[in-house]
Amino acid sequence: MPVSDDFQKAQRFREAALPYLDDVYTLARYLLRDASDAEDAVQECYLRALKHFDSYRGPAMKPWLFAILRNVCNAEYARRAHSHAAIEDTPGAVDETPMWQENEASPEAEVLRNRDAGAIRKMIDALAEPFKETFVLREINNLSYREIAEAVGAPVGTVMSRLARARAMLRAAWMAEEEHSK
């Protein structure tokens, strides 16, 4: 009976997708940098996910939800008509920014440990796309490289170079702020 099928589908969807609400919301907050935009995007993401739940065959729920959320956020970017100059996502660009060249090892460990979450969130927010997205998916949402590749629709090699770039930029920002506050 269709009523029961539909109800069961909604129930299955609830159990499969709602446990990841905090993960999806976290990614939305970092991508959109605005609490209420993030809420709207997450709600839209779950509506779309429910709509396509019938055709969902795996692999894993989390990257699938993230992929949907990205589409929603991209539409939001288009709406905002972002004028940020995108940083080139080419392997060559990595060589031009030798931000990891300084060799001294460890007073920075202390610095890092003392950073509060608010300051770290700001630095992550300041990362350019698509590096921020890759970074958040790996470090905060705990996806494997393969799952990130699935969620963002890029080859694993690209994920790896973006992640290396993102971490290098973050560390540079960290050290720069430390210099600044001396």
């Binding site: 905090d22 919301y25 090892a105 979450a117 905060i140």
Partner: peptide, 18 residues
């Protein structure tokens, strides 16, 4: 350096709660 940064990140509360 990157290993240390990971430790620092792991200790910070970077997730949001819906």
């Amino acid at each position: 350096a990157q290993r240390e940064m990971r430790h620092a990140l792991a200790g910070a509360k970077l997730r949001y709660t819906a």
